[in-house]
Design a protein around this nucleic acid. Structure first.
Lengths: 351, 351
DNA sequence: AGGGCATGTGTGTTCGGACACAAAATATTT
DNA sequence: AAATATTTTGTGTCCGAACACACATGCCCT
């Protein structure tokens, strides 16, 4: 176990004092070129790593407070974005020694105006870092431009957006998600049956980026397998339980050959519940993410499986990375951090 | 974010000095009944939580070294027990600030004499804690009795053993594992086909506890579904690649209706490779754990899926719990810690 | 009463890092 | 050249916990 150098050791090696080394490491300036060179020479030889434990307790003494703004869509308890939020809250508990002051700013994920207005407000806020749930592309790009100008670092959860420079982005590989859903449906549904892929019906907005990728990847799998003709696309009212139920019932009545339902968003429970109530048997239903509704339906047996992209972990890691950046000015994670993708059946559901 | 009390704050509240509080928390004795009562009164009101960060740096000053003995079966690189080992090594790196000196003592998991001899040696060793990979029941019970006598704490990975008192045991729910395997096979294999469940053929030893539970649970699922008649048990030479290949080829020739192969141990790659080479098509093969061999076969497509019980996480958590116990004399984990169970297909394999 | 001897108790030092502040070295002005 | 301003550097203090050590206090015995 190679022990790491301490600041004092580096200071001795470079022939300067600990304070000077500290200034170099933190880019606090006020260091002569000679001292800088001497220290960098030592650092080249033996790389230094901060001791988070020491940072943590030393930090308390400073009385510093970091304001972190987190802007994500609002959602009901146990729904997708709330899972991200609980991961964030978990991280706050774990890193409680660093006083991170969090301000949540929620917006409506189905309303670009709400998003734009919210983001305008954030641009005027004074904070140390921003964590952004990626939804509307243009609005996000605009916000990021504003943050770049003010030198405020930002991090993404749930996706990434072109022409922006987040310090890191935490998300799942959506292509893999879509393919996996297809693979499972392909396996579970008899070869001569049809498979429905369900999208949200959203008036006035296009399909979100993630869902679109999943859908394309899903269809692509079946094209490769020459089974694409068995796939039926169907849009349902994802924001209205009653309506969604009626729509899927009608759909199944008209399409009796459908024996598999793949829902590309996180509200599969709206569908699976209705399918069971309507008395259709032997239909395999799969969806995304271990939201409360989905978990309940898996437990009860109406939903067969979900693909979990760990929204909580995304939130947790985003806070962790933000803290790391604020402390040390670097992210040791690469810009894109892919979450593991799990498959959850009743048998391996965590209660 | 409710900040936690520090030792000094407790001392002030209880009207004693920090040193006395420290003695109480660490059960170091030398505390009068009055002082003890006063401190406990404060602790009852506001529960104290150690600050791991402070413990970490304060620990360095002590120069103390903890010797932890880890006794698990030896295995080739990338095989099951080696995955547990890498989780352990990861934990050692993460907790490098606490100088944990690890001594691995390996034994032969197929030879109870090797196990007994190894355990006898361990009983004579002087160490702070022992992490035990559970294999042979009687030998483990014997070792634990010896450790209990010397007051040395021990932890289990991969299972538990009756009549022992480990501080914690890290494992997956084997019943769930078996059921999940069955569920996936049931779904992926056509209703009119047969399914083989593969066990290791071991001369002179009975089936390991974990495999036995998985098998029973697997069969149980099919009994519930009244599909048990389609299940064929088959034993293969799990320690000999060539032999295993020949055995499964012969078996499939004799049983052409078999379209699913469920391997209840971690060497499914021995089977899937042979099945592909022998030219059998449309056979679904599933197994356990993301060993190197299994991961390779999943990537190449011969193995359809594995159920991952996170041996690395088991190892990691065991070290973490050991450290926690040595530092604070408690495990905040309950005695049995169940690992999450993941399902891994080609699409969600982590490279 | 005073010398042991145990048992309690408080204080001081340290771990590695973060800064504040004072001190030293250098540069600039009068 | 002296006075002042500016840059650079070193030192000291503290964060919370761990423990060594010295300082009590009480008790028994000669």
């Amino acid at each position: 176990m190679a022990q790491h150098l301490t600041i004092k050791q580096i200071a001795t090696l470079a022939g300067v004092s600990a304070g000077t080394v500290d200034r170099v490491l933190h880019n606090r300036g006020k260091v002569s070129e000679e001292a800088l060179a001497a220290i960098q020479a030592v650092l080249k030889d033996q790389s230094y790593r901060y001791n988070l434990h020491s940072s943590a307790i030393a930090f308390k003494k400073t009385g510093k407070v970091w304001n972190i703004v987190i802007t994500i869509p609002f959602s009901k308890k146990g729904e997708y974005w709330d899972l991200i939020k609980s991961g964030i809250d978990q991280a706050l508990a774990e890193y409680g020694d660093f006083s991170l002051k969090i301000e949540y700013v929620f917006f409506d994920q189905f309303n670009s105006n709400s998003c734009r207005e919210t983001f305008e407000k954030i641009k005027k806020m004074d904070c140390s870092a921003v964590i952004i749930g990626t939804t509307f592309v243009e609005e996000t790009q605009n916000l990021c431009k504003g943050l770049d100008k003010k030198g405020i670092p930002y991090f993404f959860v749930d996706g990434k957006v072109t022409d922006t420079k987040p310090k890191a982005a935490f998300m799942a590989n959506q292509t893999a998600c879509g393919r996996l859903l297809a693979r499972l449906m392909d396996g579970f549904v008899a070869d001569d049956a049809e498979i429905a892929v369900l999208l949200p019906k959203r008036i006035g907005t296009q399909l979100s980026n993630n869902s679109a990728i999943r859908l394309a990847s899903f269809r692509n799998y079946f094209k490769e397998k020459s089974r694409d003709s068995a796939v039926k696309e169907f849009s349902f009212s994802a924001d209205n339980e009653k309506k969604a139920g009626e729509e899927i019932s009608a759909f199944l009545k008209e399409n009796p050959a459908v024996k598999g339902i793949a829902v590309v968003i996180s509200t599969a429970y709206l569908i699976s519940g209705a399918v069971e109530k309507s008395g259709f048997k032997g239909i395999c239903v799969g969806g995304f993410d271990a939201t409360e509704g989905n978990s309940r339906c898996i437990r009860e047996g109406s939903l067969d499986f979900i693909i979990n992209q760990h929204p909580d972990k995304q939130g947790f890691n985003a806070v962790e990375a933000t803290l790391h950046y604020l402390l040390y000015g670097t992210t040791d994670s690469s810009a894109d951090e892919l979450m593991p993708i799990d498959i959850v059946f009743k048998e391996n559901l965590i209660p």
